[in-house]
């Protein structure tokens, strides 16, 4: 057989494909900047990169379950639940006079406990009992909504201690702003897990063909459950960063965050039918959504219209996902 494409030209095509989407984001950015020059200001660039960090973490959380052909509808409400629970723990511990570092550790532990608990719940029902993940997470979404509304009384929890907000939001470490640093750590960790471990490899294989993974003797159910727990931990980290940024525990984050996370992951190229996509895709997808909403905000497009646009982006992402197969 004659190979029409040499390995080198195939690699070239692959690189071009990989760069298409980032270039598209740049083009969109340029277009916005033409209408509103302030968009291209250094200050706004910093703004965009710090804004995008949260979405990157949430898109990564969604990616980790999308790759093994799962789905997480509970993401938004799990963020609320984690945020409110952590804020309550923080304010009460601060009131009790704990020192700053202890407050940070306590907040971190509370957040991770809440997030992984939700992940464990989803993972248990989706993998051990084999219920389709989206129905499980739909249930979990309501449970999280109910829990966060109940413990907060439906109101934001104010007075998150400064030690906490410094660590996760306003502080800098070696000149790097905290949100960017933590997000980079998370992204690198997720990348290593997905592409350099047996667990990560298995997630891709089972996303593509779950029964083949079982025949090959790999622990499909266990890994599927762990994927949800990992996703829950990522949700928790994102929620902590978000809580630090607003300085409040937010009970009503729900729907929009979920839609943005899904749109980011799928738009970036993570497949809805599993087995394709990684950290790079989640990051570019999140950047796309952030640049878009940043631009729309500058152009003073109403929030309602932005919601419509987000819906259209999701439908577009689905269509793109379909065309990639």
């Amino acid at each position: 057989m004659t190979t029409a494409t040499s390995p080198r030209s195939r690699e070239f095509v692959a690189t071009v494909k990989l760069l298409t989407f980032p270039l598209l984001i740049l083009a969109m950015f340029g277009l916005f900047a033409m209408f509103e020059p302030r968009i291209a200001s250094a200050r706004n660039l910093v703004n965009i990169s710090s804004q995008s960090t949260y979405l990157i973490v949430f898109a990564l959380a969604q990616t980790v379950v999308l790759v093994p052909r799962g789905f997480d509808l509970s993401l938004g409400n799990a963020v609320s639940f984690t945020s409110v629970a952590t804020a309550l723990a923080l304010t009460s511990s601060f009131a009790a006079g704990l020192p700053g570092y202890a407050v940070v550790v306590l907040g971190l532990l509370t957040g991770l406990a809440c997030g992984t608990a939700v992940g464990l719940f989803n993972g248990f029902f989706a993998s051990v009992l084999g219920i389709r993940s989206f129905i499980v997470t739909l249930g979990a979404m309501n449970i999280c909504y109910g829990l966060s509304a109940t413990i907060s009384g439906g109101r934001p929890v104010f007075n998150v201690p400064e030690a906490f907000t410094t660590f996760f939001y306003s502080g800098t470490f070696a000149g790097i702003p905290a949100p960017i640093l933590w997000t980079a750590c998370v992204a690198i960790a997720v990348h290593v897990v997905l592409s350099n471990t047996v667990f990560g490899r298995t997630l891709y294989l089972m996303g593509c063909n779950p029964r083949a993974v079982e025949v090959a003797g790999l622990p499909r159910r266990k890994y599927f459950a762990i994927a949800f727990v990992l996703s829950g931990a990522l949700v928790a980290i994102g929620a902590l960063m978000l809580t630090a940024r607003t300085g409040t525990g937010e009970p009503n984050l729900g729907g929009n965050l979920l839609l943005q996370a899904i749109a980011a992951a799928v738009m970036g190229g993570v497949s809805l039918s599993g087995g394709r996509g990684g950290v790079f895709h989640a990051i570019t997808g999140a950047l796309f959504i952030t640049v878009l909403s940043n631009g729309l905000n500058f152009l003073q497009i109403s929030g309602y219209l932005q919601q419509i646009i987000l819906g259209l982006v999701i439908i577009l992402a689905i269509a793109l996902d379909k065309s990639r197969d």
Partner: peptide
Amino acid sequence: LAATRPILENASMAALPENAFSIRGFL
């Protein structure tokens, strides 16, 4: 087979836990 994944990953699928393929869970 996992059709969208490369030949390499499909061929090594059943042997991933072996020492030649991974150490402590790292490929």
